[in-house]
């Protein structure tokens, strides 16, 4: 059996309604999650609003954490990032591409969770470095800033379909490089 991480233990306690655990989780994760919201939304007031929304979701959904197959920090980041992307897109009046949190609902038995070892991190970054620089930037823009295909096409001044082709090829190359 894998040992429970500190954050994982907090999530288990939060699922039982432990407000002290929630307070501790907030203290040790809010700076990162606020950073995610700020980067995606580029506006402090909106980022603060979405940060609160994300923690309310965490409070209500903590009981479902253990069945979703993601490592605890990935789960928390996914909630904040998806909330921020949804807000960004609703503000832009583009109701498509919603990131409603599938992974919060899943009840399937997941495969073993993978921790973020420095090895896998280097692996992703090394693999991004094998891509042409603007293609790596497009992948990073989609993940770190929540950019849509339309946003990316505009930023890189290419037609939408070209951007889609670029990015899909980049993802295949990344997967080939990182392996399964």
């Amino acid at each position: 059996m894998r040992e429970l991480s500190e954050i994982e233990q907090m999530l288990i306690d939060i699922a039982k309604g432990n407000q002290q655990a929630f307070s501790e989780l907030y203290d040790c994760t809010s700076a990162k999650l606020y950073g995610v919201c700020l980067r995606v939304l580029e506006d402090e007031a909106t980022a603060q609003d979405v940060l609160q929304e994300a923690y309310i979701k965490i409070w209500h959904k903590a009981a479902q954490y253990q069945s979703n197959g993601l490592s605890p920090m990935t789960w928390l980041i996914t909630i904040a990032r998806n909330s921020a992307i949804d807000r960004r897109r609703s503000q832009a009046s583009k109701p498509t591409e919603s990131m409603e949190d599938y992974e919060l609902e899943s009840q399937q038995d997941g495969p073993e969770q993978c921790a973020h070892s420095s090895q896998t991190q280097r692996q992703l970054e090394d693999c991004l470095n094998t891509l042409e620089p603007d293609r790596a930037d497009a992948v990073k823009g989609a993940y770190l800033e929540g950019l849509s295909y339309a946003d990316l096409a505009e930023q890189f001044s290419v037609p939408l379909n070209t951007m889609r082709t670029w990015l899909r090829r980049s993802l295949l190359k990344l997967q080939g490089c990182m392996g399964q």
Binding site: G35, R39, L70, H116, T120, Q123, L124, Y143, L144, L174
Partner: peptide
Amino acid sequence: EHFANLSDQW
């Protein structure tokens, strides 16, 4: 999980 490894960049 792989993309979350970029989280240091936030």
